[in-house]
Computed example of a mutant assay.
Amino acid sequence: MNDPLLYVIPHVIIHAQSEMPRECCGVVVVLPRTNNVHYVACNNIRQETEHFIIDPKDYVRAEDTGRVVAIAHSHVYEPPVPSLADLAGIERTGLPWLIVNVPIGSHTITQPSGFKAPLLGRPFVHGVHDCYALVRDAYAEQGIALNDYARRYGWWNDEDGSNLYRENFAAEGFVPVIVHSPTSDDLKLLRPFDLILMNIRARRENHMAIYLGGGVILHHLIGTASRREAYQEFYQRRTTAVLRHRDLMPASETDHADSTPVR
């Protein structure tokens, strides 16, 4: 066994079997005194049986145990091949990921390699590949870096929850261009890479899209793959605001832009 991660595979498999049909997850650490690898089983706080989110309290506990060197999780009745979401997570953590299959017990170990998920056709995984992740990646291709924000599934319907979009996008460099559902005249004002906020059957805005021009948007709805689609009436009626990033505006416009957050 040349790779020390191989020593923890039996422990990950035992954990995975106990969690079926849900995915298990955990952290591999190197113990400070012995330099031995050790698997710290963590709680998967994602409600769905597919995918995982490590409980932050468990991750802190793992860090207290030793130096984190890898993330481990299981694929149930699926090959241990990293999904697009897994590959994105590998890059985000900067750590190798050990994936085991249950019940067979096969495994893969995947190192960070600079992977970037395609903008089109990525499956929806909230918090990893969702509408905001697509927006971040698309703007990154334009040289605009947007911060990531922790978000729990269903935050848009919490009675006293935060508003991910309205509370943060002024600080991210966006200014309001339209603050209501667009009229036919408003549609003529749209420019490529305007950001469209929408409310689709929720307490607060829960979706966003990037305007590509020519009446087409790029977006990622729950339960679908990311795609281009016509900015049709269904989406126009659910639009609450259109924002434009200052870096995509000429100086003559930024001098007069309203930086007040959309209310």
Rank of each mutant, 00 (worst) to 15 (best):
E63F: 02
Q47Y: 09
P118Y: 01
P123L: 07
Q236I: 13
L31Y: 08
E253A: 13
V68I: 14
P80D: 11
M208C: 15
T239M: 09
E253K: 11
M208A: 14
Y139T: 11
L120A: 14
A257R: 10
E78N: 10
L243G: 00
V76D: 02
Y211T: 01
K188R: 14
L6H: 08
R67T: 15
S74E: 04
N199G: 06
I71H: 06
K188W: 03
P10Y: 14
A171D: 15
A251G: 00
H107G: 05
D148V: 02
A170P: 09
L84A: 04
H75Q: 03
E159S: 01
L31E: 14
G26C: 15
H15E: 11
N35S: 13
R228E: 15
L243P: 04
E50S: 04
G223P: 01
W97C: 04
N36P: 05
V179D: 06
L31G: 09
V262P: 09
T110E: 00
M198T: 02
E19C: 12
L197A: 09
L221C: 01
T65V: 06
D158S: 02
P80L: 13
R92H: 10
F169W: 12
I9M: 08
N157D: 15
A225C: 03
S106Y: 10
L146G: 00
R122F: 03
P32C: 06
D186T: 05
D137L: 07
R33I: 11
D3W: 00
N206D: 13
S106F: 09
E159R: 01
V135T: 13
N44D: 14
F193R: 07
H51G: 03
N157E: 09
H180M: 06
V29S: 00
S226N: 03
V242L: 06
V175Q: 01
S252Y: 08
D247I: 03
V8L: 00
L31A: 06
K57A: 12
D55T: 04
R67V: 12
D3Y: 02
Y235R: 03
N43Q: 13
L195R: 00
I9P: 09
V68N: 03
V262A: 00
Y153F: 11
L146F: 08
I13Q: 11
S184R: 07
V179I: 12
